[in-house]
């Protein structure tokens, strides 16, 4: 296996008496794409939010590039700046233009000059095919365009890994492809990615492994062909039969 970029080790989390994560373990190598799927409420989103410390966890350990996320001594803002994250509802900052969305953290967190940040922003807008939208406000863009801007915004920080939390779930069907195309391109370029999604076509095409979660547990963690060919657990079989039916 290649170098381990993200190591999730026996992570558990409780909301009061309710256990949302139960001893979850998986490793993501450098340049690997891992798809996380499972029924809603299975803890997928919670698990990837633990990776950059947006959700604290109760037990276990997560290291990203050798740095422990749960360690109180870790400088979380600094670590988060190195991990890109894309959300289901885009979460662009509505009062800032597309370009200012892209440069804000580059300048305030990475300390880049305005010129450098703008240049970098323009290059990434070009990459997601939105060069001509730089001066628009997020509210003026379609959902698919907003999500591509959100991906560009995360990439602008030169992340070592990217986390996607159901990036196409809030999109109209005709916009899903434009977002997935960008993500496939990223995967091909060797970006380390954890993607929570139900887009099984995407998983088949680019994922090295598929992690299946149910009730806060990682039920199955298998190479992609194996997962789609013959999922071992009954729960994963049932899930696949439901979502691959149509």
């Amino acid at each position: 296996m290649t170098d381990i970029q993200i190591d999730i080790n026996e992570v558990s989390k409780w909301y009061g008496p309710f256990q949302v994560l139960n001893r979850c373990s998986t490793k993501v190598g450098k340049g690997e794409v891992v798809v996380v799927c499972g029924p809603s409420g299975s803890g997928k989103s919670t698990l990837i939010k633990c990776v950059n410390g947006l959700e604290p966890f109760t037990q276990g350990a997560i290291t990203v590039d050798g740095i422990s996320v749960g360690d109180p001594k870790t400088n979380l803002p600094k670590l988060r700046a190195r991990i890109g994250m894309v959300f289901q509802h885009f979460e662009l900052f509505p009062h800032l233009t597309v370009m200012r969305n892209l440069v804000l953290a580059q300048i305030k967190v990475l300390g880049r000059s305005s010129g450098e940040a703008h240049e970098n922003g323009m290059r990434l807008l070009d990459r997601v095919g939105l060069r001509d939208q730089a001066e628009k406000f997020p509210g003026e863009l379609s959902g698919g365009q907003q999500q591509r801007v959100a991906i560009a915004r995360a990439l602008a920080m030169d992340p070592i890994a990217m986390l996607f939390d159901e990036p196409t779930s809030a999109l109209d069907p005709e916009m899903i492809k434009e977002v997935l195309d960008v993500m496939v391109g990223l995967a091909r370029d060797g970006m380390t990615m954890i993607v929570v999604t139900h887009e099984m076509g995407f998983a088949r095409q680019v994922a090295r492994r598929v992690v299946f979660m149910d009730k806060g547990e990682i039920v199955e963690d298998a190479p992609t062909e194996e997962f789609f060919g013959s999922p071992r657990s009954e729960r994963a079989q049932m899930f696949l039969s439901k979502i691959l039916q149509y």
Binding site: N52, A81, M85, F87, E91, F93
Partner: peptide
């Protein structure tokens, strides 16, 4: 939306 806070923090702010 709570997501705005998370998005800002996720960028390292």
């Amino acid at each position: 939306a709570q997501g705005q806070r998370l998005a800002a923090l996720a960028l390292g702010l």
